[in-house]
Amino acid sequence: MALLITGGTGYIGSHTVVELLSADQEVVIVDNLSNSSIKVLQRIEQITGKTPVFVESDICDRVAMDVLFSTYNIDSVIHFAGLKAVGESCQNPLSYYHNNVTGTLVLLESMAKHQVYNLVFSSSATVYGEHNASPLVESMPTSATNPYGQTKLMIEQILFDLAASDPNWSIINLRYFNPIGAHESGLIGENPNGIPNNLLPYVAQVAVGRLEKLQVFGDDYDTHDGTGIRDYIHVVDLAIGHVKALLALQQLKGCRAINLGTGNGTSVLEIVKGFESVSGKDIPYDIVPRRSGDIATVYANAQLAHQTLDWRAEKKLVEMLTDTWRWQSKNPNGFE
């Protein structure tokens, strides 16, 4: 039996594929390569000594999805495929709703047609919106402040409704916080298209000379140094969380939402100073006004993941920053 990984050549997907192959799982990747590189497959093989099956296709393509499920003996799906830039989602909401929501619907219909009922979905802490106080707990009310977050929220609701309608389904929505870091080999890591939307790839690109300086959005938050605090989690810990979630599906029926985070918060300036320390590079920055919708402090309560998945984040911040620098310094232009 095989595992289907949608978006498996992306940042989190590729690290999860490495963990699955290392655990001797049979893996099929489907990806349209819109936000990733085909060269990731060579890097995965270098790390694991194994080559996953790769299908270049779009999950919105119903015929292609049916062919895929008919061709491969798929037992479970981890669903990463989706557009993920908040700012871009505000500029082009129809693309986000079509790609993320319609693509998921096509995937689910193909799964049901071929009687594949085990699913781990790549959700996000963005579904907690602006009005919940940290630590964020799965039972809190959800909301969204942008089209990207809204697509995650919509898909979660679809999955809860689907599981309620049919007892065959076993689904886990993994709500993760801020993935950073890279594989310790330095062969795979975060490789955003264009200007990075997230803090750490931006910092890393400043350190390696691709970008001139960092913009820090606000230094007047109610935090110890005035900058925003987030829960940063190593991408390898996150990947292991997906492997644990797949195992948990064997005993779980219905649909559950589970946080993946460290339970600790780190400020923007702490990230900058920490990265300067591990890289030996200066990170120049300007303080600019806050972004609309940003809040002071976001971090997880991750107890449910420990109870349900037997999972805890293991890697410390210095490892996250060191692994990011190893990846970026070895690959200053990403995979190109």
Rank of each mutant, 00 (worst) to 15 (best):
Q91M: 01
K316V: 09
I195V: 13
T126D: 11
G228W: 00
I74M: 06
N301Q: 09
S124E: 06
S267I: 00
G10P: 00
L20F: 15
S89T: 06
I271W: 00
K213E: 14
N301D: 15
I195L: 14
V86K: 05
P179W: 05
T145H: 06
S123E: 00
S185T: 14
G241M: 11
V106P: 12
L68Y: 10
L238E: 02
Q150V: 09
L317H: 01
L317P: 00
K50R: 14
M111Q: 14
I233D: 06
T126L: 09
L83A: 10
L214V: 15
V17P: 02
Q215Y: 08
I172V: 11
T324D: 03
H234K: 05
F121V: 01
A64D: 08
Y221G: 08
K84M: 05
K281F: 15
V55M: 06
N333L: 12
E109N: 14
Y96A: 01
V17M: 15
L107Q: 08
E336A: 13
H114W: 06
K84W: 03
I47L: 04
V298T: 12
G241W: 06
S267C: 02
K84R: 13
S329C: 05
M154S: 10
G226S: 12
V243T: 10
V272E: 00
D294Q: 05
E109Q: 12
A64E: 06
Q25A: 13
S70I: 03
Q215F: 13
I78N: 04
N197S: 13
R230G: 07
S14K: 08
L214C: 11
F217E: 09
L20S: 06
Y148V: 02
L249V: 04
N92Y: 02
K315S: 05
S34I: 10
N198A: 07
I171V: 02
L159D: 00
L107G: 11
E138W: 01
Q328M: 14
T227E: 00
V77N: 05
D231I: 03
